[in-house]
Every structure is written in structure tokens, then in C-alpha cells.
Amino acid sequence: MNIQIIAATILLAPVIGGLIAGIDRIITARMQHRVGPPLLQPFYDVLKLLGKENIAVTNDQSLYAVLYLVFNVITLVMFVLQMDLLLILFMLLLAVASLVLGAMSANSPFSKIGAQRELIAILAYEPILISSVVGMYFVTGSFSISRILQIDRMLFIDLPLLFIAFTYVLTIKLRKSPFDFSTSHHGHQELVKGLTIEYSGPSLAMIEIAHWYETVLLLLFAGLFFANNLYVAVAAIAICYFAEILVDNIAARLTWQIMLKSTWIPGLLIAVVNMVWVYIKYHV
């Protein structure tokens, strides 16, 4: 049974992730009054990348790209197997760390600055991600997804502020505007493509596919707040992702200074307020 679940996850997740990326691109295009690419364009892109020559600056860059992919897959599988949420977050960290190390291994100032910015992004979102998990713990008494799913309340009702904070850092995690400064879907930023600037061909394809897995994981995470009702959860995920696209299109790219301030001060503040409230509600 587990083997089947794992296989299904590994095979289905990139399809779903790719389709989400395709829908994202179409909606983004429409928001900019463009026709936009076909729905399957992300797949065409990746297939094209896979067919290209792998050109690199250093020997082990591609290694990190593959590591990034593999750890993202492992993290998603762990999520689907309903393991401990904190552990899943740490595995996710491992995935991001490989991306950062890949960027730092190349001797390019642009990718290295991108790596530092990504690290700052980790600094910004990690406390909030962990806080949301801890908030869930306060409500359900467990860090394990299998236990969280058993609860018959909707977590969102207890953790609305944490959900807001979570969607806020989701923008950082998905590297969408206004927080797309470590790398972006467009080369038009001061770091060109930041983290991924020295990647090309199949290794870049690996990173793209890893993004799909990551997107699926993060959206499932968002769905966890509505886990007791599947339809509500799917609707919430859709609304959540639409909001991300909307924000992507109505905001300028901010700087990491502003991001750090906004996540650590108001972001963590509302997270803490929510945590204190559920702590008092369930533990005092």
C-alpha cells in the first residue's frame, strides 16, 4: 500500500505541479492582457531543457540540482505518508540548502548573492513555517500529520492568523513577486536569475521539476488548515493560489530588508498572537 502511495506521489505530483504552473502562466498572462502560452507549456519547456546540452560552470553544480529534486521528492513523500510535520520542514530545508549550495559552488557573484538572499528568505519564512506547525500542535496535540488529519475540527477556525502568516510566507517560498529576489521567473532583476543563473539544460529542468514538487507540497500544507473537509480544502488551495498569482501581479519586487522586517515583526507577531490564543484555549 505504502509503495503504491509513494509511486503515485512521485508520478502524479509533477503532473499536478506542472499543470498548476501552466494555469498560473495563463492566468498571469490574462492579468497582463496577454493571450499567454498553452496549458502544457511548462512541460514543453522542461522537455526542451532535458534535450539540451548540459553546460555548467563547475563540476558539481548539476549534483546539487539533482539533490534539490530528490530531497523535494522525499519531503513530499514524507508528507503523503503523514509523518512528523517538523521533520518534513527540516527535510524541506535540506532541499533548499542543496539549491543554495549549488548556487554557492559556482564562482559567479550573481548566483552567490542569490544564494545569500535565499538564505535570508529562509531566515524570514522558517520561523513562521515552524510556528504554524506548532500552532497545529497546540490544537491537535501532535506534530504528526496522521494525527492532525484525525481531528474533526477545521484547523483554520483556530488558526486563522497563522494561516494568513503562512500564505504570506508562501509568496516567499514560491518565489513570487514581491519576494522574487533570490531568483525569479523572469531574468529582469538585478541578479538576472539569481540562484539559478549558472544552470542550463537538464540541470535547470531538474530545478523546474523540483519546483513542481515543492508547489504541490506547499499547497498541500495550506490544505492542511482545512483538512477535515476535502472540498473546502481544495477550494481553499485554489483561492490561496489564485491570491498568490494576484499578488504576483499587483506588487513590485520588494527588497529583502523589507521582507525580513515584515515577516519578523508583523508576521511573527500575528503568528505568536494566534499561538498564544490556542495555547490558552487548549492548554491552560
Binding site: 546540452e53 553546460i55 563540476n59 548539476s62 530528490v70 522525499i74 557573484p109 548566483s111
Partner: peptide, 23 residues
């Protein structure tokens, strides 16, 4: 196992050509 997989993939992906970084 992941690392093993990575090395297999890596051998397939091993860069054929090296370039200078973007400056």
C-alpha cells in the same frame, strides 16, 4: 539511496562542456 540515485542521475547529467560564469 537518494545519494546513490543522485549519483546515477548525476553521471547522466555530468556537464559535457564547461563555461565561464556570467559576468
Amino acid at each position: 539511496i537518494a545519494l546513490l540515485l543522485v549519483f546515477i542521475l548525476y553521471n547522466w547529467l555530468k556537464p559535457k562542456r564547461y563555461v565561464q560564469p556570467f559576468l
